[in-house]
Amino acid sequence: MTVEDLRRRHVALLRDRRVVDGLRPGADRSDTRYHTWTQVASEPAAARLDRLLDLRRRPGPYRSARLHDRQRGLDALHPELLHLARRAGWTLTTPTLAAVFPTGTLDGICLPVPGRGVLVLVDSGLLDLVPNVLTVMTGALPHYGSPPLLSGEQATWALTEMFNAYLYGNGAVGPHALPELSGQRRALVGALSRRTVQFVVAHELSHVVAGHLVHARRWTDPTTPVGALDSLSVGWPREHEADRTAATIMSHTLDDLTQRDVEVHEPYLVGAMLLPLFLHEMTDRLAEQFDLAVPFAGSHPPPVRRIQALVEHLSDRVRTRRALDLAADVATWLEDRLDAVSEWFRQVRVPAS
Rank of each mutant, 00 (worst) to 15 (best):
L23K: 01
A46N: 09
G22P: 05
Y34N: 07
R17G: 03
L49M: 10
L52P: 07
A45P: 05
D50R: 11
Y62K: 01
T32N: 08
H35E: 14
L13H: 07
W37E: 00
D31R: 14
G22W: 10
E43C: 00
E43F: 03
V40R: 01
R63G: 06
A45C: 10
S30C: 09
L55H: 04
R18A: 15
V19P: 03
D21I: 01
R63V: 08
R33W: 13
A45K: 14
D16M: 11
G60V: 04
D54I: 06
Y62A: 10
D54L: 13
A45E: 15
L53Q: 10
R57M: 14
L13E: 15
P61K: 07
A27M: 04
L49A: 09
R15Q: 13
L53N: 08
L23V: 05
P59V: 01
D16S: 12
S42P: 00
A46P: 05
P59C: 02
R56W: 09
R9V: 10
S30H: 09
L23N: 03
G60Q: 06
G26V: 03
T36C: 08
A47P: 05
Y34I: 04
T32S: 12
R9W: 07
L53I: 06
D16H: 12
Q39H: 04
L13C: 09
R57L: 15
G26P: 01
R29E: 13
R57A: 14
L52Q: 05
R51P: 08
R18I: 06
W37Y: 00
A65C: 03
G26T: 02
R33T: 15
R51S: 11
L23W: 00
L14N: 04
Y34G: 07
G26S: 01
A46C: 05
D31Q: 14
R57T: 07
D28I: 00
